[in-house]
Design a protein around this nucleic acid. Structure first.
Length: 592
DNA sequence: TTAGGGTTAG
């Protein structure tokens, strides 16, 4: 075979292997060609192919292929194994990367300085710190511990596994650090939620930052809602010579959205030189988080119109938009789209479906969807418990909680919000008290202000006003307008005038710019017929330029959504065909 | 060969 035809064949094989659904039979033919063509003589061409094997072959076949090439060519060096490990580290089965590493050692092939970074990447994705420590030991034994790439990978893996002290010692003792050393540690801090540490490291960098560094720190700013910090990093990015690549542009976009700065996000989005599925999905999910579900659906339609098809991540956010709108027909459309287009199922998508069906009134379908989920995480359990809570099935919600604990799934703070809300909606006072205590006593979860809010609501609804007031006085944080509002509502319902006056005094001491305070005050005065005070509060609001945001409820009936303005049902009922509009948007583009 | 972007529950 000539060199030219060999190269052409190599290119053709790579193209075939890169196809997402290369069949096994197809691969066998490729493999036969590969061996007979002599291409495996070129070890780098073979290494390229080895890295692609995990994506298209089951592990035994991939492994057999490498062994076959090794036997035929009598290789005794680790190049092909490194490639295979790297392929697995990037696949959804990174544990196989570690298996390849172990087999390689057992076969008497020594790892080199390329092996350690790739096998450590497999540890990050799969097995954790115990395996990483063993690999660290092996790297020292084989004299690769002073290699910069190996050190960078070790610092990163220890920090990702939350072994921050070990990571920091290794980092501090490095004789030479490059931008990857710094960014590797910063990104691990960000993933672990150590925002301050990440920021501190970012400011003390003594090498030039690059796009990856900016991306990691932008993620941190977004996650912590630090708009000022994000804007400062934005300015640094603009000053930096590397320019704005797609990943950095997307990170900026997402930062602005997470900080709920829609105008700046829109500007970034408009100015992006190109947009990929991440740009669109960031925008869609950002709009949902900013409580703009209708705009999110519009954006989804624009995305499809531009020729970008959604994946499982996009559709999770779209389902969340449908849930916020209460739009069952749109949610069903997404469900069918997933089936029709063979979208990859994952726990996010399943959880979003459970939530969507529950919020659109279909509790039975939500429960069925949940039971059919092959893998459930704590969020999935929270979604199903929340579903039962919002439908008033308190006892069943508690039953699911027991099941969850029974299988060894640890509840988190959100689980207890769902449980307390279930107890509140079903009047289960004693169960609520027990759950509230369980949080701290058994799970070491200090209650958030929202948990106190649920408890005040639960106690207040059943007339236990004094107990609710005492609980507020024991709170470790300052009670906000929602806490006082919950007690105020209970006082009005149970006619306790003395406590009501006391609450009004507390409300007046709260943050003067808090809109809710004025609304509560005004409503409370109105309920007591003190119209002069009502006028005084309203005037004060006008003077301060405070405008009450209108609460809205959407209820879908026979595919038509009706929007209600909260608290003013008789006067301001508006029928807006939100769901039909939404569905039309989706259907228009269905045949694209 | 090592570091970087979007997802669910509240």
């Amino acid at each position: 075979m000539s060199v030219a035809s060999g190269q052409a064949l190599h290119a053709a094989l790579l193209r075939l292997l890169r196809r997402p659904r290369s069949s096994r039979r197809c691969f066998q033919r490729i493999h036969a060609l590969l061996l007979t063509s002599g291409l495996t003589v070129d070890s780098f061409a073979a290494a390229d192919l080895a890295a692609l094997l995990p994506a298209c072959l089951p592990p035994p076949a991939a492994f057999a292929t490498i062994n076959h090439i090794h036997r035929i060519r009598r290789y005794r060096f680790p190049l092909l194994f490194n490639s295979l490990i790297s392929g697995y580290a990037r696949s959804d089965r990174p544990n196989l990367g570690i298996a390849v590493y172990k087999t390689m050692l057992a076969d008497g092939i020594f790892p080199d300085h390329y092996t350690f970074p790739v096998v450590l990447k497999s540890c990050i994705e799969f097995s954790g710190v115990a395996e990483a420590k063993q690999i660290h030991g092996a790297s020292v034994k084989l004299c690769f511990a002073s290699d910069l790439f190996v050190q960078n990978a070790l610092v990163h893996v220890y920090a990702i596994c939350r072994e921050y002290d070990d990571a920091r010692v290794l980092f501090d003792e490095m004789p030479l650090r490059d931008v990857v050393s710094w960014t590797g540690l910063i990104s691990a801090y960000v993933k672990g939620g150590l925002y301050r540490e990440a920021l501190q490291l970012f400011s003390s960098m003594d090498v030039a930052r690059n796009a990856a560094t900016f991306v990691s720190i932008l993620v941190a700013c977004g996650r912590f809602g630090d708009l000022n910090g994000g804007q400062m990093v934005h300015a640094l990015v603009l000053k930096h010579e590397c320019g704005l690549n797609l990943v950095a542009g997307n990170a900026l976009l997402d930062m602005y959205l997470k900080c709920e700065s829609l105008a700046e996000a829109k500007q970034i989005f408009d100015e992006l030189p190109e947009r990929d599925i991440v740009s669109w999905t960031s925008f869609i999910s950002g709009l949902v988080q900013c409580k703009q579900p209708e705009q999110a659906i519009d954006m989804f339609a624009s995305m499809r119109a531009s020729g970008v098809e959604p994946d499982n991540v996009t559709l999770s956010s779209v389902l969340s938009a449908c849930a916020s709108l209460g739009s069952l027909c749109s949610g069903r459309w997404v469900h069918e789209y997933i089936h029709r287009n063979g979208i990859k199922w994952d726990v996010h998508l399943g959880t979003a479906l459970v939530d969507m069906y529950a919020k659109c009134g279909c509790l039975d379908i939500a429960l069925n969807t949940f039971s059919e989920m092959p893998f459930k995480n704590v969020s999935s359990w929270n979604a199903v418990i929340g579903a039962l809570a919002m439908h008033g099935h308190g006892r069943e919600a508690l039953g699911y909680f027991e099941q969850m604990v029974g299988i060894g799934m640890n509840p988190n703070e959100v689980t207890f919000l769902a449980i307390l809300s279930a107890c509140s909606h079903s009047g289960l006072v004693e169960e609520g008290r027990c759950s509230f205590n369980l949080m701290t006593e058994s799970y070491n979860l200090p209650p958030w202000i929202e948990h106190y809010g649920c408890m005040v609501d639960l106690l207040g609804r059943t007339g236990l006003l004094e107990e609710a007031y005492k609980l507020i006085q024991t709170m470790p944080m300052r009670p906000d307008v929602h806490i006082w509002g919950a007690l105020l509502g209970a006082c009005k319902a149970h006619g306790n005038q003395d406590l009501l006056q006391e609450i009004l005094n507390h409300l007046l001491k709260l943050e003067p710019h808090e809109t809710g305070v004025y609304v509560l005050l005004s409503n409370a005065y109105a309920a007591r017929g003190r119209w002069a005070d009502v006028t005084r509060v309203r005037k004060l609001m006008r003077q301060k330029g405070i405008k009450k945001e209108t609460g809205i409820s959407i209820v879908e009936v026979d595919g038509e959504a009706h929007k209600f303005v909260v608290g003013e049902l008789q006067n301001l009922q508006e029928d807006i065909l939100v769901a039909s509009y939404t569905l039309d948007k989706l259907l228009q583009l269905d045949d694209l």
